[in-house]
Amino acid sequence: MPAPKHDAPVSLDTLKAGVWKENPVFIMLLGLCPALAVSNTAVNSLAMGLASTFVLLGASFLISLFRNVIPKQVRIASYIIIIATFVTVVDYTIHALSLELYNALGAFIQLIVVNCMILGRCEAYASKHRVSTTMVNAVGMGAGFTLALFLVGSIREILGFGTFFGIPLFGPDFQVWAVFILPPGGFIVLSLWLVLFAAIQRKRDRMAAGKEGAYGS
């Protein structure tokens, strides 16, 4: 647990860590199922990202608050129940707000329960840190998850439908690349993002290690 006097710098780092260095999807490979299943358009992936972020925030808050009360032996079960409660809230909220979105996301809203990103963060972070630190970290992680979904979703929508947020980007002659909105496209786009992230990471490492190795990647 970080010392209270170092709170401010730690918080900034914990916030940024989730977005880039420990990005849940691209670096830690967590929460992949929703990242691929509903990311065929930018809107769907944003909605999914925000819904997951809300669940992550709520669950992290409660778990961090009760971290000294929950017995070690049944902690996973308790976490799952807490997460499931928030997921039920999200499920009913989306159902009430937008039926169209609800139908597009389908069972995948309820499947946020088994998003390993959320359980992973609860187990690895929320159960060991103070509420304030946990919340900052959860915001960062949620943002990173949403960003990752958005990146995958945008590429798939642009190539697969020729639109972005429903707005046509290319002329009427554009031949849509239908494979990208179908399941194989999800795998392939994610794979390409992983390669890109690895390449950037490698370049940075080389820059940090010494200037002699820092030629293009």
């Binding site: 992983l194 690895a198 490698r202």
Partner: peptide, 10 residues
């Protein structure tokens, strides 16, 4: 650069 996960997804 294609780490084991990236190539697995491909």
């Amino acid at each position: 650069v294609a780490t084991s996960a990236a190539i697995a997804f491909m």
